[in-house]
């Protein structure tokens, strides 16, 4: 007759708890990444308009364009000539205020401009500062009448992004620490179940490495299996949420911007999980591998 398999139930429980911890870590990575995607998407609307003097020469305009390109913070510069600006203005106002669109004197006041798009690699939280610097540099240039970039909106957006970034980082650290605590307790309980085995092995002359090796292997196996399962579960979660956003929340137009964590992050989660499992087991075994004293307490 075999004794009851208490260890199997304990191993299963440990696997479930550790997998749940990795799911929480993976899900927070996923939420954090997609939140950043959405913020970046909103940030792509940030543009700067450089109003040019009516007497600016072609060479002067090219110098300003070159200045913007040389800054390395700009992805695109489009000239909106006075004629184009006039024509757009007429189209926009024709139905609202037809009289104004016919006022030739007023229309002469509309200047040519450069529409500037920021480079996509500039973090959302940095956009306000970059725009401020560019604007102050441009204002000092001859031939620039004014620079506008919706300062209020950009500054509020940047503050919002910064707050979200800090929140995500704090929540992320709390989740990782809490998960590590839960995980280490689960591994400790599993290793404690082998306490008698450790005492006996030590007593009959097993070396420290002989005692620790099986626990390290078991911890690493627990780490790799649970982190892989967690990545799979997170992927399922991602597919489900994406389909919900695409089908039920299509008006948000966010579906195509939702992405899964990168392959590099997946590899890091699995390798990190394996290392955490092995390290957790190692620390627990080291604590209870104290021989006769342990046997006396048992």
């Amino acid at each position: 007759m075999r004794p009851p398999q208490k260890n199997f139930a304990l191993k299963l429980t440990t696997l479930i708890v550790v997998t749940a911890c990795f799911v929480v870590i993976g899900a927070s990575l996923l939420v954090s990444k997609n939140f950043r995607n959405i913020l970046t998407l909103w940030g792509e609307d940030v543009q700067m308009t450089v109003y040019l003097s009516s007497d600016l020469s072609e060479q002067g305009r090219q110098d300003i364009e070159q200045y913007l390109k040389d800054s390395g913070q700009v992805s695109d510069v489009q000239l909106v000539s006075q004629e184009k600006a006039l024509s757009d203005f007429r189209v926009q106002l024709a139905s609202y205020a037809p009289d104004i669109s016919k006022d030739e004197e007023l229309l002469k006041l509309i200047p040519a401009s450069l529409q500037v798009k920021l480079a996509s690699n500039i973090p959302a939280s940095e956009q306000s500062k970059v725009l401020q610097n560019l604007a102050s540099g441009l204002k000092a240039k001859q031939g620039v009448d004014d620079v506008g970039y919706g300062q209020d909106w950009v500054e509020k957006y940047a503050a919002f992004v910064s707050a979200i970034e800090i929140t995500l980082q704090v929540v992320g650290i709390v989740i990782v620490l809490a998960s590590m605590f839960v995980m280490s307790n689960a591994i400790r309980a599993s290793v404690q179940a082998h306490r008698d085995e450790i005492v006996v092995l030590e007593m009959i002359g097993a070396t420290t490495s002989m005692i620790r090796k099986p626990f390290l292997k078991e911890g690493a196996l627990l780490g790799v299996v649970s982190s892989t399962l967690a990545v799979g579960l997170c992927y399922g979660l991602y597919v489900g949420l994406k389909s919900l956003v695409v089908q039920r929340l299509s008006f948000l137009q966010l579906g195509e911007h939702l992405t899964f964590i990168s392959p590099v992050s997946v590899v890091i989660v699995i390798i990190g999980g394996t290392a955490m499992g092995a390290l957790g087991s190692y620390l627990c075994v080291r604590k209870i591998n104290d021989g006769w004293a342990a046997s006396q307490r048992a």
């Binding site: 008698d196 005492v199 006996v200 030590e202 007593m203 009959i204 002359g205 046997s295």
Partner: peptide
């Protein structure tokens, strides 16, 4: 320890 043998009151069997 491989040169000695130890027996406990509570047997210490796996």
């Amino acid at each position: 320890r491989r040169k000695i043998g130890v027996i406990f009151q509570d047997f210490k069997l796996l």
